Each structure stands twice: as structure tokens, then as C-alpha cells.
Simulated scan of single mutants.
Amino acid sequence: MFQIVVTVAILYYLFHDPQVRAKMATTLRNADARWLFLGFIMYGLVEVIAGWRWQLLLRVQGIELGWVRLCCLLLIGVFFNFIIPGGTGGDVIKTFYLLKETPGKRTVALLSVLVDRLVGLIALSVFAAVLIIADWQWLMSSPVVDKFVWPAIIILGGSFGGLHGIYIMTSRGWIHRLPARFPGRDKLAELALAYNLYGRSWKPTLSAFGLSFLAHLGYFAVFYCAGQALRHDNVRMPTFAEMCAIMPIVNTISAMPISIGGLGVREGLFQVFLNHLCSVPVSDASLVSLCGYFLTFFWGIIGGVVYLFYRPSDHARLRDIRSEVAELEHTVAEEEVALETAEVAVHGASGGGSKGEPDKAKR
């Protein structure tokens, strides 16, 4: 409810002025449909790349899923990302139906979705660092913009540092020492198991990492195409390089659970960045963001249609889906903690190795 209220409030604040809405309507009527269509196709390519990446991660664990079924799951995930607040609702749905597709490999199926998101997050952090450093002077040229750059750096840096900390805990075998009621213990144990399973398969994991860069570039290109479609008169829309510097910051902040799918927050950020860095009128800046959003939303609609005809099993209620996935996550986490505890006990009894460092090679 909070996210709904915030989303409505921000959108009302941004678009309540009738003159702004009139300018947006005029710009939209004159939009270049060819660029909009190209943006639509670009996001389709993003999902193809995401499918390729996910298939690599599934094959690491011996899961072969055909392209048709894989694409169905991806599009269904896109659909639920738009209708479930929180930004990860699509992952829960994808996980649930992937479990139905791979009944004998539930654990590795669950972890493939987790690692898929993890690889994308790490790639975005690295990508953002490179792009922000490359365009540092330009981004810092506006005292208004730099107030948003620093929070994005802190969020991405904190996420990257947190993942590194979890890796250290995993490599030293400390997960089992956490109290059973420790917040996020199950998720930490899942990550530990994911590191163990995918750390040995570094080549396909590295390939998935590279594909994530291409997926991010494709997503940035969607908003670049939206800007080019709305270009008019003497308005200079951002170049592709400039859009690539802006988008990681916008994505990072709008991904915070403030509004539904970042709607409203994203438009406000586009107003700030495009207006202060490229002198784009605020009405056009908001429209660029909305057009980019709807170019991806159309694929969500396609995913909704796919969901209606997707029948690996009877459709379950969202509450039941969340419950089943959460139960499996807890089971997987407890299995990892038990395995880690057993390995530490074996080392303690044999006197071999450093205390608290399980033999990961035996897994």
C-alpha cells in the first residue's frame, strides 16, 4: 500500500500541470515510430540475452530446458515484475514454475535463478563504476545531479561489498555459526551453496557475466531509442554514451522499494539528469522515461498472455507460490548449514586443515 501511495503521489506531482501534459501530448504525437519500434525490439533482444545467460547457468547443473519453455518463463517473469511490488516478484514466479519443469533438481533450479540475478547485479556494479568514473566530470558538473550520484555509488558499493563479505564467510565456513533466527540466514546459506556450486564452473559463470554486460547495454539502448524518437526542434537528447552513464544511477535508485517498479521515481530522476546535464525540457525528460518504461511494459503484456496459456501445472495463487518457494529456500539453507557443520566436524576430528574451513572440493 505504501508503494502505491508513493507512486500515485509522485506521478501526480510530476504531471499535474496541464501545460506540461499538453507539451508531452504534442511531443508524443510527433514521435518517430521507427525509433520506438527499434526500442521495442531492443528489449526483446535483452530478454534473449537473459535467456542465453540463464541457460548457461542451468546447464552448469545439468538442467536442459528448451528455448521455448525458457522464453516462456522469462516473459512470465517480466509480467510479474510489473504487477508485483518489490522488483523480485518475477523471480519468485520463475522459480516456482521452473521447479515444476525440473522436479528432480529442485535445489539447483532454485539456485540458478539466484545466481542469474547475482551475476546481473555484479555486472551492473562493475559497469556502473566504469561508466561513472569515465564521465565523472560531466556528472559532477551539476550540483543538483551530484546529490543523486553519491547515493547510487553507496548503494552499489554496499551491495558489492556485502557480496564479497558473504563470499568470505562462505570460504571460511562461518555460515553454520549464525543463530537459527539470524535475519537473512536462509538467504546467506543459499548464497554460500551457490558460491560452492558455481565457483568451480568459472568458465560458464564468466560467460554469463559477459552476457550481463550486453543485457545492460541493450536495456540502456531502449531508453536511448525513446529519446531519439522524441527528439524535436533544437532539443538535444543524450548520446548513447551519455545515456549509458545516466542509466546505472537511475536504475540503482529507482530499484529501491519506494514505488511500484520505480514508476514515478524514475521519471523524476530523468527530469533531474536530462534537464541539468543535457538541457532537455522536464516534460520531454519525463516522456523519455515513460516511453522507455512502456517499451518494456509491452513485453510484460506479452508475458501475461503467455502466462494465460502456460500449463506446466495448474496456476497457483500468489500466496501459495511464495509459500512453496520460501519453504524450499529454507530447506536448501538448512541442508547447506548441515553440510557445512559436518565438514567442520570431520576436519576437527581428523585434525587436518585450518579450523572452520570446510573442504569445499568434496562437495
Rank of each mutant, 00 (worst) to 15 (best):
E327S: 15
L287P: 02
V325A: 09
W299H: 13
G262R: 06
A189R: 05
A194I: 07
A22V: 00
G303F: 04
P204S: 02
F223E: 04
L36A: 11
I83M: 01
T7D: 01
M243A: 05
D91R: 04
L118D: 00
P281K: 08
A229R: 04
R319I: 08
L206D: 07
A152R: 01
T107F: 11
L295R: 03
H164P: 11
F80V: 02
S283E: 13
H330I: 06
G51W: 01
Y167C: 06
L56R: 04
W35N: 05
M169L: 15
M140Q: 11
R322I: 13
R363I: 14
A128W: 02
R317Q: 13
I49H: 09
E324C: 09
V235W: 02
S201K: 10
G162M: 11
A192L: 10
V130Q: 09
I168V: 15
F148T: 09
G86A: 10
V20Y: 11
V119K: 01
R117E: 02
A31H: 01
Y195E: 09
I63E: 07
L287A: 10
L277Y: 05
V46W: 05
W299C: 01
I302R: 07
G120K: 00
V149G: 07
R317G: 13
V145F: 07
A33H: 11
G89A: 05
M256K: 06
F223W: 14
A33K: 15
I10M: 15
A192C: 14
G62L: 03
L328I: 03
L65S: 04
